[in-house]
Amino acid sequence: MTRVLVVDDQFLIRAGLVGLLHAAPGIEVVGEAGDGEEAVALAAATCPDVILMDIRMPGMSGIAATEKILADAADPAPRVLVLTTFDLDEYVYGALRAGASGFLLKDSGPERLLAAVAAVDGGDALFAPSVTRRLVEAFARQCGPTAATDEPPPDLGALTSREVEVLRLTGRGLSNLEIAGELFISEATVKTHLNRTMTKLDLGSRAQAVVVAYETGLVTPGGAG
C-alpha cells in the first residue's frame, strides 16, 4: 500500500487529487495539507511514501517544505512529486535542487498522475528524466544557474572519470538503459556509478543530479553536453 500526502493550497484541486487517489487501488491518502508548514507537520506525523507537493502556497513554500521534510525524514525519506500549473515554472528548478523526485503538471490526466505516484514509490528517482532535463535546460538558458541559487555548484573532483561521464549523460536526460548502451556497460553498472556519484555529491535524487550537471557545466543549455 502506497501512503500519499497531498499538499495544495487550493481546496478544489486538493479535493480532486484526494478523491482520485482514494479511488485508486493500492493507495492510501494519509493526509492533506493546505500550506507548507502543515505539510511539514503532517509528513513527520504520518511518514508518507509519496508527497504530492504544490509549489506556490502562502507562508512556507513548497520548496522550503520539501527541504525541511527531506532534511528531517528518517530513512527511507518520502518521495516528493512537485505539482505545478505549467512546465516552465522557475520554482520547479528550486524544488528539484531541494531534492524533489520529479514534477507533474496539474493538468495531467488521472492515468499519468497514478503512474507518477507508482513510479516514484517504486524507487524511480525521476518520473520523466527527459522532461525534467528540458525544464532545467529552459530555466538555465533563461536565467543561468546562479539565478536559481546562491550556493556554489559542487566540486566534481571526488568523482572518477566514469562517474563524471555517467553524470553527464544523466544530465542529458538519458535513462540508465540508454546510458548503458552509450558506454557499453551493464545497466546495473550504470546504477552503481550513479549511486556512488550521488553519495559523493550528497544528492538525494536523480533530478538533483540533472541540475548539478548543468550547474557544473557538464551539460550546457541547448548543447549536446
Rank of each mutant, 00 (worst) to 15 (best):
L12A: 14
I13H: 08
A15N: 12
L17D: 00
G19L: 11
G19R: 07
L21M: 15
H22E: 15
A24F: 13
A24G: 05
G26F: 07
I27K: 00
I27M: 05
V30W: 02
G31Q: 11
D35P: 02
G36Y: 01
E38C: 02
A39W: 00
A41W: 00
L42K: 06
A43V: 07
A43N: 03
A44S: 10
A44M: 04
C47A: 14
P48G: 09
P48E: 00
P48L: 12
D49V: 11
D49G: 10
V50K: 04
V50R: 01
I51L: 06
I51P: 02
L52I: 11
L52Y: 12
M53Q: 10
M53S: 08
M53T: 04
D54G: 11
D54L: 01
R56G: 10
P58Y: 04
G59T: 05
G59K: 11
M60W: 03
M60T: 15
G62V: 11
I63T: 00
I63W: 06
I63M: 03
E67A: 14
K68L: 12
L70D: 05
A71H: 13
D72E: 15
A73Q: 13
A74F: 10
A74R: 15
P76R: 06
P76C: 11
A77Y: 07
A77I: 08
R79E: 02
V82A: 00
V82E: 01
L83Y: 01
T85V: 15
D87I: 03
D89A: 11
D89K: 08
Y91S: 07
V92Y: 00
V92W: 02
G94I: 06
G94Q: 06
A95Y: 04
S101T: 13
K106F: 10
S108A: 14
E111Y: 03
L113F: 11
L113S: 02
A115Y: 04
A116Y: 04
V117K: 07
D121Y: 08
G122L: 04
A125G: 14
A128F: 04
P129W: 13
S130Y: 04
S130W: 06
V131M: 14
R134L: 12
L135R: 03
